[in-house]
């Protein structure tokens, strides 16, 4: 009898607390989405982006081995993206260096309804743009640790976002007054990141920028981490938000990492005309080797990228989301 009474009391107390718990969850989802949508809206201020990038692929922990020959691979590439008023988004990546890869291109196009199409161009194989099947959406491309989805703007309509208190994770030791943590949980269909159960964004609220994203596998472990460094304020009044000039993707599962350094960035329609995203223009970029040689002549890009990587990695753990998250160079 006593037992039944105790159980009843417990149930009553639980019911008392249940509505506020639901209410809290609801609020977390609402504020998480609001935060992500505000970030997404900010990036829509720049519909035309041209970037010259240096990509360094290396094994995780290579710092311990030294920058020995043969343990890293360096590429120079151009990135174009263009958003149209009708919701179409196009991105084009063209490799300029090394010479053997010059002209290799990846073209993406997404429409307002969320449909994505991808093509690749291999100049040494044929003059055709080859369709890349949808199954590749979650796979890394061109041997790097970035996936195709990383090239696309965050598809906020395909995720539920939940704002979590930072204090819930004592390991991170981040200042709770500056960072927010948002979990992005994929909705059932069309998950752009099918290899991961969820992503966890760490957002610098003051600068309105994602400082780091953790990719959690289906077992709930951090399999990859993307961190942004060398942050620069955008806009004349520095009110256009911040962008990282260096992105480090650490792939813990594969023991590998990809460092993307933006050497030059221009937000201008004249740099990204619509004619770039055509078969003829893409095919015209392959083969001569001239760009590769030009880039080699300006090889300080490579040194710059390596120097930057060194500065970030030497003397401690790989960059993490912490108080240094703001462009620390």
């Amino acid at each position: 009898m006593v037992l039944w009474r105790a159980l009843g009391a417990g149930l009553f107390v639980a019911l008392l607390f249940l509505p506020p718990a639901f209410a809290n969850e609801e609020a977390a989802l609402r504020s998480g989405r609001a935060l992500m949508e505000s970030l997404s809206a900010q990036s829509s201020h720049y519909p035309w982006v041209y970037e010259e990038q240096t990509l360094i692929l290396s094994a995780l922990g290579w710092r311990q081995e030294g920058l020995a020959d043969g343990v890293r691979m360096v590429r120079k590439q151009r990135f174009y993206s263009r958003s149209e008023i009708d919701g179409t988004f196009r991105a084009l990546l063209i490799i300029d260096y090394p010479a053997e890869l010059q002209g290799v291109a990846l073209l993406l196009q997404s429409d307002a309804a969320g449909g994505v199409q991808r093509w690749i161009y291999l100049p040494a194989l044929s003059d055709e743009l080859l369709v890349v099947n949808e199954r590749q959406r979650g796979s890394p491309f061109f041997g790097s640790d970035f996936t195709l989805a990383d090239l696309l703007p965050e598809a906020t309509d395909r995720f539920d976002y939940r704002l979590l208190s930072l204090t819930a994770d004592p390991e991170k030791a981040l200042p709770a007054d500056r960072f927010e943590r948002v979990e992005a949980l994929p909705r059932a269909a069309n998950n752009p990141h099918p290899n991961f159960r969820l992503r966890r964004h760490y957002i610098d609220v003051a600068q309105k920028v994602i400082a780091s994203t953790e990719y959690l596998n289906h077992q709930g472990e951090v399999a990859m981490r993307l961190s942004y460094h060398d942050l620069h304020a955008l806009g004349v009044q520095k009110d256009g938000g911040w962008r990282g000039d260096m992105l480090l993707m650490e792939n813990f599962a594969q023991g590998h990492q990809s460092l993307l350094k933006v050497d030059k960035r221009v937000f201008s329609e004249s740099y990204v005309p619509a004619s770039l995203f055509t078969h003829d223009w893409i095919v015209s970029q392959g083969g001569s080797g001239a760009r590769s040689e030009k880039w080699l002549a300006e090889s300080h890009y490579l040194q710059d990228a390596e120097a930057m990587l060194r500065r970030h990695l030497e003397g401690g753990a790989p960059p993490r989301v912490d108080a240094r998250g703001q462009g620390d160079d």
Binding site: A59, E100, L101, L122, P123, A124, L125, G143, G255, H256
Partner: peptide
């Protein structure tokens, strides 16, 4: 060129066992 371009379709960690960067 084609050799280099084909190898783009493998993640670096997969190639690491067979060919240096």
């Amino acid at each position: 060129q084609l050799n280099a371009q084909y190898l783009l379709f493998f993640h670096r960690s997969e190639l690491l066992r067979y060919i240096s960067s």
